[in-house]
Amino acid sequence: MLQNQNAFQSSTREPVLAVEDLVVRFATARGAVHAVDGVSLALAAGETLGLVGESGCGKSTLGRAILRLIEPSQGHIRLDGTDVTHHSRSALRATRRKVQMVFQDPFASLDPRWTVGELIAEPLHIHGIGTRAARKAKVADILAKVGLPPEAARRYPHQFSGGQRQRIGIARALVLDPEVVVLDEPVSALDVSVQAQILNLLVDLQETLGVAFLFISHDLSVVEYVSDRVAVMYLGRMVEIADRETLFAAPAHPYTRALLDAVPQIGGDGAPRRPPLAGDLPSPYAPPPGCRFHTRCPTAQARCGSDIPVLRTLTGGHQVACHFPLATVPETA
């Protein structure tokens, strides 16, 4: 399959995680929804792939499907080359050590009745790792790594602020030394001043631990800051993947361009922006035919309404799914 080969080529190293043509279908009362519709991506060891898109684009569903928290309907998920798409739950438990997740809401994902030490040691318990003393040492070690004092282990989640709770969530995800961590909007619930702390922490941790991040967010500035490569989704489909500099300086897909234009910025000179995208996101129950973006696209042409654009490579790992990609000459900003 052409698409998959492209996904592999885009990363120079052997991918630790490869998603191939993944489809997640939900049967609902209002009909079937293709929340993720044939998405492929690859994540190399130690890199950060940012995954952006607006609500309903399927980015969170994709993240959860990679962890098999939601069962994919079609396609493959490979970890270190092993296809885990159809692993039984018991076989999956072993692979779960390699892929971990950090959730958006640090209030909801931590059991309020457990101490922080117990919460962080739980993954070690589940996988039968280490003696009691070794686990204790590991908990102390990971607490230090995420910037929490050792006495935090004896306290309960409600005694911490939002930012500190997110540190606990990160510690829990990292205590098993995973190869991949899926971060689902990890800083969206936090105040700006605390966001910076967590973003710096994530960058530091990746440098010391060499873990790969799939960083899911709706916030383009945050994604630009943390990512090596960036993937953009729209209504269940991948529309563009490129390395960070290319994507932010010279996006090829009109949707990516529009997303970037819509971000309100400090330091604008007051010059009028390009007008915002018109119209609403179409209903995921009845996505438009052809290119799903054509109903809102400022440069759409007749064939966009009928032919589905395939993800194709422009230059050096820059892939776009558009019949009429924008000129990829970097703009001078």
């Binding site: 700006v192 001043s193 966001q195 910076a196 973003l199 383009l220 500035s221 945050v222 630009e224 800051y225 960070r244 500099e245 932010f248 300086a249 970037l260 971000v263 910025q265 400090i266 330091g267 900003a333």
Partner: peptide
């Protein structure tokens, strides 16, 4: 602090 804490779009170099 608030202004500096916020990553700026297009603001990150290599």
């Amino acid at each position: 602090g608030l202004i500096a804490a916020r990553p700026r779009l297009g603001g990150r170099g290599a």
